[in-house]
């Protein structure tokens, strides 16, 4: 297909994903808003007031970037895994598989759709956070770049999960047993400097730590890890997971007989 035709195909998938996100807003946008409001009330207001300052910010201000990034990650992952697996389950994915669309266009379309949901949810959560505290974005470009890259990493991971999944339980396992523990242990609620060894060193192998801290640096200007390192880690995950996803699509794993 020509570049113009690929652009049309890409736009079609992204548009379809956005329509889906907005059509089922009560499942896609409302739950994270409610959950994060509870986090802000309980951890930020009630408990946070007793914790005091962290890296020169109130506890509420400190956890806002982590909670926003946590929403972005879980929603990007959830969007692509449920949408692509749903298409597989209903066999609607065959509409795309029998078309002349290249695999990379299909992958990019789903990833952009998932990143879009992550960004929308992140914006909603950030707006809710502003009801509880004031924030000044220290580095806007780093903030935007970390949001896009963090969402892209977990969109790609969700896509790989959906390709291998054979039943709906399979797409729920990873968020429950992998994503949630890594997120909670990824410096969302605390600075890793508070941890003793070997826990501090072990935390450094958690990729979510780099995403949370890159975003926190963008918003607050403080980070537990080097921002350059964080971006290298995110870019490496994007490249690695993209290669895996494209390889699976080329082989037709879970999609073609």
């Amino acid at each position: 297909m020509s570049a113009a035709e690929n652009a049309v195909a890409l736009g079609t998938i992204v548009r379809r994903e956005l329509v889906r996100i907005l059509r089922i807003w009560s499942q896609t946008l409302l739950p994270p808003a409610i959950t994060m409001t509870l986090y802000f009330v309980i951890f930020g207001k009630l408990i946070g007031s007793r914790i005091g300052q962290m890296h020169g910010f109130t506890y509420m201000q400190y956890i806002v970037p982590g909670l926003v990034m946590m929403s972005i990650i879980t929603n990007s992952y959830g969007n692509i895994s449920s949408s692509f697996f749903g298409a597989k389950f209903s066999r609607a994915v065959e509409e795309m598989l029998v078309s002349p669309m290249p695999n990379w266009v299909m992958l990019l379309g789903y990833v952009l759709g998932a990143v879009a949901r992550g960004v929308i949810v992140g914006a909603v959560v950030l707006l809710i956070a502003l009801l509880f505290t004031s924030l000044h974005v220290a580095h806007p470009l780093i903030t935007i770049a970390s949001v896009v890259l963090g969402a892209a990493v977990f969109s790609l991971a969700g896509f790989v999960n959906a390709v291998f999944a054979k039943k709906f339980d399979d797409i729920a396992l990873v968020p429950t047993f992998v994503l949630t523990p890594l997120t909670y242990l990824g410096g969302v609620f605390y600075s890793v400097d508070l941890l003793g060894e070997p826990w501090r060193s072990l935390t450094l192998i958690n990729p979510i730590l780099y995403m949370v801290n890159a975003f926190r640096f963008g918003v607050l200007g403080v980070s537990d890890v080097g921002v350059g390192t964080a971006f290298v880690v995110m870019l490496a995950f994007v490249a690695g997971l993209s290669a895996v996803a494209l390889h699976l699509l080329k082989r037709g794993t879970g999609l073609r007989s």
């Binding site: 297909m1 998938i13 329509v19 749903g86 298409a87 066999r91 509409e95």
Partner: peptide
């Protein structure tokens, strides 16, 4: 049957054309 039953026939057809790079 291999289309998303929650979509509308018009959208199903227009999206299908989109996958072939046909302008909207």
């Amino acid at each position: 049957i291999n289309f998303n039953v929650f979509e509308k026939p018009f959208d199903i057809c227009v999206n299908e054309a989109g996958f072939y790079g046909i302008p909207r």
